[in-house]
């Protein structure tokens, strides 16, 4: 019965947020963007609203949080009562505060990792496609070899070798995901490199960097942007999973994955507190997926 009520409340909230976001975006958007938001499905509107909310929380974390991130405030595992509206964790730190700071730490680290993976992967991929020859062959075969190992297994192997710290975590996940980005960027760029205007640009004497930046990147942008959203989800989930396993972001930094791990014992007593950070991860991933889905649908021009 409670499950059913929770489901209904969730659905109602989803529709309300989606509708409100659609109306707000239509009213607030500058004129040329208005048609874009008019045909937006409810799921995408909901996704955009959630993403905006997360960004706001991440930026305003010190203002919003009632306590400080690492401060031990009292008894451990306190129930949901004022002033600790979501109770306290294993060490007696305020749960709500840590949830809010988690938006900054977890999402920030995942975003930085994705950007790194993207810069490295797409530049190498496009460079390989433009250059061709043995450089392309060597890079591609190397990436193939790395991709033959499941991503999580490869990350675990690399983390064993380089040790577990936030910096190695970012570098390892970025390296593993850059191989996937490389594949996409290379195949997209290969389709562009054979175009006449690239040949014209080459004859004009454009250098490699200018060719990539001015001729290829603008035309490869659409698939790369959609891939960025999807890649962010994978990176975000990978980092959360590793933190959950105790191999990622380390305490006392507030991070959603390790918060689930630290407080997991509460679940067996029927307390849903540890589900909150896990739910925060799930909600953001769903939201990003909804928006990416909408963008892909628009880009492909499909009308089902």
């Amino acid at each position: 019965m409670t499950v059913l009520i929770a489901l209904l409340v969730g659905l109602a909230l989803f529709f309300a947020t989606g509708l409100a976001a659609r109306v707000a975006l239509q009213a607030g958007a500058p004129a040329p963007l208005k048609p874009l938001f008019r045909d937006m499905p409810l799921t995408a509107a909901f996704g955009l609203a959630v993403i905006l909310f997360y960004i706001l929380v991440a930026i305003l974390a010190p203002v919003l949080a009632p306590f400080s991130e690492h401060e031990v405030l009292g008894g451990q595992y306190l129930p949901w009562e004022a002033p600790h509206y979501l109770g306290t964790d294993k060490l007696g730190r305020d749960m709500l505060t840590r949830l809010i700071y988690g938006a900054r730490n977890t999402v920030g680290i995942a975003f930085a990792t994705t950007v790194l993976a993207f810069v490295v992967g797409s530049i190498l991929g496009i460079w390989a496609a433009v250059t061709g020859g043995w450089i392309d062959q060597a890079l591609s075969r190397f990436v193939d070899a790395l991709m033959a190992i499941p991503a999580l297994i490869l990350s675990l192997l690399l983390l064993t070798i380089f040790g577990t710290s936030v910096l190695t975590l970012i570098l390892v996940i970025a390296a593993v995901d850059a191989t996937r980005v490389y594949r996409l960027a290379r195949s997209v760029a290969q389709g562009i490199v054979v175009m006449d205007y690239i040949e014209a640009a080459r004859l004009r004497g454009e250098g490699m960097w200018r060719l990539i930046r001015r001729e290829i990147l603008p035309n490869a942008m659409a698939p790369l942007v959609a891939e960025f959203g999807l890649r962010f989800c994978f990176v975000f989930l990978a980092i959360s999973a590793l933190s959950f396993l105790g191999l990622g972001i380390k305490p006392p930094t507030a991070d959603w994955g390790s918060m689930v791990r630290e407080n997991a014992t509460l679940i067996t007593f029927g307390d849903i507190t540890p589900l909150l950070p896990a739910g925060a991860i799930a909600l953001l991933t769903v939201a990003v997926n909804f928006v990416v889905d909408w963008q892909l649908h628009r880009a492909s021009g499909l009308k089902e």
Binding site: C233, A241, V260, T268, I272, P274, L275, A282, T285, N289
Partner: peptide, 22 residues
């Protein structure tokens, strides 16, 4: 389908624990 792809495994697992193991 979109939702469940986005869920971390441990989230699904703990929901099941809460619901079926409790």
């Amino acid at each position: 389908a979109l939702t469940s792809i986005s869920f971390p495994e441990f989230f699904v697992a703990y929901i099941l624990v809460l619901w079926l193991a409790q």
